[in-house]
Structures are given as C-alpha cells and as structure tokens.
C-alpha cells in the first residue's frame, strides 16, 4: 500500500459516506422541480411551478405554520425548564439527585411510539378534549426537556469553577456572579440545546401522529398522511428551503463559534 493511499483512505471514505448521507437530500431537492402528477415518485420533466406557487397545494402552508408555532413554543418552554434543571444538577447539592437523573434519562430511552401511545392513552382517558394543538405542544415540550438538560448540563460541567470563584473574590455577590459570569459562559450550550429542541420538535412525526387528533396538522404529519395519496412537490420545495435555512443557521453558528474560540468577538 502506497503512503498516499494509507494517508488518504479515511478521507476518501468520509467523502463517500457524506455523499451517502446527502443522496436523499439531493433527491428531495431534485423532485421539487418535477412535473408531478398525482404522485411525485417518478421523474416526468423539469418545472418551476412548485417553487412559484409554494402554497398552491392545499393545507401545506397551514401545516408549516403549525409546525413553526409548535416548534417555537415547545423550544422556548423546554429550554427554560431544561436549563433550570441543568443548573440544579450542575450547581447544587440536593437529595433525590439520582431519581432526577433517572427521570431525565427515561424519556430518551423510551421509543417514540411508546411516548406517543401513552400520551394518547392519557388524553383519551381525559375525554380527548386536548387532542390537537394543546396535546402536541405538551408532548413536544416533554420529549425536548431531557435533551435540553443533557446538553446544558454538559456545558455547565465543562466550566472552570475557578471562574465563578474569581468573580466572588472580586466583589460579585451570588446574583452578579451568575449574571455576569456563569450565564454568559453557559449561553452557547443553551443556544445549542434550543436548536436541538427545535429540530426535534419540527421533525417529529410519530408522537404528533398519535396526539394531533383529526383537525391539527404539522408539516411532517402532512407529508406522512399525504404519502399514501401522493406528496405534492410543494412539500419538497418547503423541505429544501428548510434545509437551506437550517444549514445557514448552523454554518453561521459554526463560524461564530470558531471566531469566538479565537477570541475575536464576544
């Protein structure tokens, strides 16, 4: 084996693996330009019509709006609640720590179909009145909390405790130490957790399916239910746009993080 080969085989592999990961994304994008009939599974020819009339397909834009609404509210609530738990775990001694850790871990170790069906069991027992937007929001916050806790807790654990001590030594009381030193330093972890929560909520099919009732539709549920009849190419357009927006957010975040690591911006 030549030196070049052994040096680069892993890199070549990585490029191939990434190609494999991105292949379905490319398909999704390509079929947003398809002259689709009832179904959008076979290539019929190029058109921009789906891009020019994104909301032309019935219900698709309403579903996106619902997804954004649920995603943002669930992210907000789960990030606040999860961050509070992470601080309790990372910065305080208390009785019941292992029970807390277990209760955080269990939702992550439970398959979505169980989470979804058990919530449905609860809501059905309550008479079914909450099914729809309220049930979906309550459920999304529930499964996002654990991921927020884990993400923020890791960030808190990586903080140098000397920094908070230095602040206290320099006349900052507990509140000032938290506001001026701890919180700004944990912020990147909270932002990452919020991003994670949003993407989990925004892409959830299974739990939403169980708890959304018949009148409330999110974007993933829209695609799932229309996959039986045929997905309109507008769904591909929206997915491609989401992909572009998310990619931009992550890339900007990465660049900021890299620059912050070099200490160029706050």
């Amino acid at each position: 084996m030549s030196g070049w080969w052994s040096r680069n085989v892993l890199r070549i592999y990585a490029v191939l693996a990434l190609g494999y990961l991105l292949l379905p994304v490319a398909y999704t994008l390509a079929f947003s330009f398809n002259q689709a009939g009832k179904s959008n599974l076979i290539w019929k020819g190029f058109t921009l019509s789906a891009w020019q009339g994104i909301c032309d397909a019935p219900d698709v834009c309403a579903a996106v709006r619902n997804s954004l609404l649920v995603g943002m509210l669930a992210t907000l609530i789960a990030t606040v609640l999860g961050t509070m738990i992470a601080f309790a775990l990372g910065r305080h001694q208390f009785r019941g720590r292992s029970t807390t850790n277990l209760l955080i871990f269990l939702p992550m170790a439970t398959p979505e179909v169980v989470l979804g069906s058990s919530l449905l069991a609860l809501f059905v027992n309550m008479g079914g009145g909450l099914l729809g937007f309220p049930a979906v929001l309550l459920a999304h916050v529930m499964f996002c909390i654990s991921f927020v806790v884990v993400t923020v807790k890791a960030r808190i654990a990586s903080l140098d405790p000397r920094l908070e001590e230095a602040a206290r030594d320099l006349y900052a009381d507990e509140r000032q130490t938290f506001m001026k030193v701890t919180l700004p330093l944990v912020m990147p972890g909270i932002a990452a957790a919020a991003l994670l929560a949003f993407s989990l909520s925004f892409d959830d099919v299974i739990i939403t399916n169980f708890n959304s009732g018949s009148n409330f539709t999110t974007f993933p549920k829209f695609i799932w239910t229309s996959s039986l009849r045929g997905i309109p190419p507008q769904a591909n357009v929206i997915a491609s746009l989401m992909f572009a927006v998310a990619l931009a957010v992550v890339v900007v975040g990465q660049i900021n993080a890299a620059r912050r690591a070099k200490g160029l911006i706050a």
Partner: peptide, 13 residues
Amino acid sequence: APFFVSFVLRTIA
C-alpha cells in the same frame, strides 16, 4: 444536514 429534511421525505427518497 439530513436532519433538516423531513424524516418522511428522506425515507421516501
């Protein structure tokens, strides 16, 4: 990146 394209659409691809 693939996360950001809907799970169902990826599977249909």
